[in-house]
Amino acid sequence: MLITGAVATTAGLVVAVPRLHDDRIPQAALLAAALFVASLVSVPAGPVSVHLLLNGVMGLVLGWAALPAVVVALVMQMAFFGFGGVLSLGVNAFNIGAPALLCGLLLRPWLRAAGARGAVAIGAVAGFVGVAGTAVLLGLSLTLSGEGFGPAARVIALAYLPLAAVEAVVSGAAIGFVRRVSPELLLGEEVR
């Protein structure tokens, strides 16, 4: 499982990294840093506080660059906080990065044409898809790595549902805000 994840992430990076034009590195890095900071904020969700994944927003804002950004964020988490092991990096990056890419590739073209309200809706969809996708992939990786994990995997995946709901509201607001204040951020491949 760890190997499959590592291979999938590496394959994704082989496609994504050449698309990251040198001129766009500062922009991608600053946006990735902004989302990293945002994901450290604890947001109330029901009786507990949660940290948002924001991988849906990442996909919308960064497109293909979302995958390298996820890898960088995970390496930073590992190096600074000791979260996650060196070996699970590949699986984790895939579980978070693949939904981000999905949002980026499917929803970003729509976002370009969307108005202010449409942007909120698309952001909300991306927020939900990002978290739900990660929950499903996480459950799958657990189930595939051992039969005894099945029930636990389902419990863990279900626990992501409230997070997905909160993330949808927050992501929708964030994307709607950016659409109104700085639409060029969403128009993509901006090279100055």
Binding site: L35, A173, A174, F177
Partner: peptide, 24 residues
């Protein structure tokens, strides 16, 4: 609250973009 957080994160993205232009 959640919408406010969304706007806050949106603002962070906008500030990040501005900063990246200066860096660039």
């Amino acid at each position: 609250s959640w919408r406010s957080f969304g706007w806050l994160f949106g603002m962070l993205l906008v500030r990040g973009l501005e900063r990246s232009r200066r860096v660039h």
